[in-house]
Amino acid sequence: MSDRKIRVVVAKPGLDGHDRGAKVIARALRDAGMEVIYTGLRQTVDQIVDTAIQEDVDAIGISILSGAHHHYFKAIIEGLAARDASDVIVFGGGVIPESEIPDLVKMGAGAIFGPGTPTSTCVKWLEGAVAEKRKAE
């Protein structure tokens, strides 16, 4: 009767200080029974990747409102690959134009949640994605 909780890093990469979304999603994930490693503001890509590996998380959620999403998604996904950790799911939200989402998904992002997405949608998606991933292990 093992109880394998879903573990997620929620991080704010870069210099953007708007953390309302990150904090709301962190609480929603907690309230859905997940363990959220919250790393706060001004995280570098290396810090986020290191944290994900040391904490053995299933997923990394990042919130970006500064327009630098392309840069950070790319760097984090590549950083995970370089550490042989491509199984870690990367998802995110923030001010990201819909037209740029396909690009991010192609890059390897699991899902992008725009403004106005209910937290329950993110929770449900993440539960499904983690279940998928664990099945493959």
Binding site: G14, L15, D16, R42, T44, S66, A68, H71, Y72, A75
Partner: peptide, 22 residues
């Protein structure tokens, strides 16, 4: 932009990806 608001020049490593964005 954010690097200016946080006191980093545009060529600082913390500024990568953020220059001129917001």
């Amino acid at each position: 932009d954010l690097p200016t608001q946080i006191g980093y020049d545009s060529d600082h490593h913390m500024a990568a990806g953020e220059v001129g964005k917001v």
